[in-house]
Computed example of a mutant assay.
Amino acid sequence: MSPDPQLVEHLVATTSLTPGEARRVVEDVLAFHAESVEAYVLRRHAHLKTYGAKNPEIFQRIAAELAERVVAAPVLSERQLRRIVYG
């Protein structure tokens, strides 16, 4: 998906970004928000596990984070989160 040219122009006009940098920033933001719920859960679980968090706190934290995303994910139970992680 190509970034909206008006948004790129706005960023160039209101920041010190070049057109190429502004385009990359918009592409990065779009890619970040395009991540599927499953991919997000897997990525966050692995990240939190790396830093020693235990599953009960991980699943509670991920559920809270999902509820606050720009386009909120559906409410998932701990069991649903476990199924995403462990199949």
Rank of each mutant, 00 (worst) to 15 (best):
E35D: 15
D4Y: 02
P3I: 00
P3A: 03
A31N: 06
V70Q: 08
A31R: 01
R24S: 00
S16W: 03
T14H: 02
R82G: 14
D28P: 03
E35P: 11
Y86E: 12
E21S: 00
G87L: 06
H10E: 07
P74H: 12
E68A: 15
N55Y: 15
A73S: 12
H33Q: 15
L76C: 04
R83F: 14
A39I: 05
R44K: 12
L81Y: 02
T15S: 01
P74N: 11
Q60D: 14
T18D: 02
V75E: 15
V25T: 06
V26N: 00
E78P: 13
A46E: 05
Q80T: 06
L66M: 12
R82P: 12
A73D: 13
R83N: 10
S16Q: 08
R83C: 10
A72N: 11
T50A: 13
E57A: 13
V85N: 06
Q80G: 08
H10V: 03
L11M: 03
K54V: 11
Q6I: 07
A39K: 06
L30M: 15
D4S: 07
H45C: 07
L30H: 12
K54E: 14
R69K: 10
A22L: 02
E21N: 04
K54W: 06
L81Q: 01
E27R: 09
F59Q: 12
E57R: 02
R82A: 15
A31L: 05
Q80A: 05
A64L: 10
E9S: 09
V85C: 14
V75W: 12
R83Y: 14
K54Y: 06
V41D: 13
L66V: 08
P56C: 03
A53V: 05
A72K: 15
P56I: 03
P19G: 05
V29E: 11
R79E: 12
Y51I: 14
S36D: 07
T14V: 02
K54I: 08
